[in-house]
């Protein structure tokens, strides 16, 4: 079984990205595949490498990068949502890529389940 994950909110403001991360981690631990994690709306801010939370807080951006690296995840940021919010290639943390919204629909088609986290 393969999951598609949709993250619709930015880091820190809302728990959506934390929940999505925990869900993704748990699915991978159970041996399931993650077809793609797609970041939409303010969720594109999860890819901002300039994010620098205080050292006693979780580093949401880096955590996604590290999980991506460990499991070779496809972390995709929606181009239209990203451009609106000033997120460009030069701002992307390791492991993220920018692409079209079609990548979300494709994830909906190719995954067995699409799980959405948002507000």
């Amino acid at each position: 079984m393969k999951f598609g994950i949709l993250v619709n909110e930015g880091p820190f403001n809302h728990q959506a990205s934390d929940s999505a991360y925990k869900f993704t981690e748990a699915a991978l631990a159970k041996g399931y595949g993650i077809y793609r994690v797609f970041f939409y709306y303010d969720g594109v801010n999860n890819a901002n490498k300039l994010s620098e939370p205080p050292s006693d807080d979780r580093h949401i951006v880096r955590r996604w990068s590290e999980l991506g690296k460990k499991y070779n995840l496809d972390l995709v940021v929606c181009v239209a949502a990203a451009l609106r919010r000033g997120i460009k290639d030069e701002l992307l943390a390791e492991g993220f890529r920018i692409s079209g919204l079609g990548q979300l629909i494709e994830a909906g088609i190719q995954s067995d389940r699409l799980v959405m986290f948002g507000d």
């Binding site: 709306y41 239209a80 079209g100 919204l101 079609g102 979300l104 629909i105 494709e106 909906g108 088609i109």
Partner: peptide, 15 residues
């Protein structure tokens, strides 16, 4: 607004 963008793209995928 952004839901509408998804709607149009999924039509392109002939869903």
């Amino acid at each position: 607004l952004e839901v509408l963008e998804m709607v149009l793209i999924s039509a392109a995928f002939e869903q």
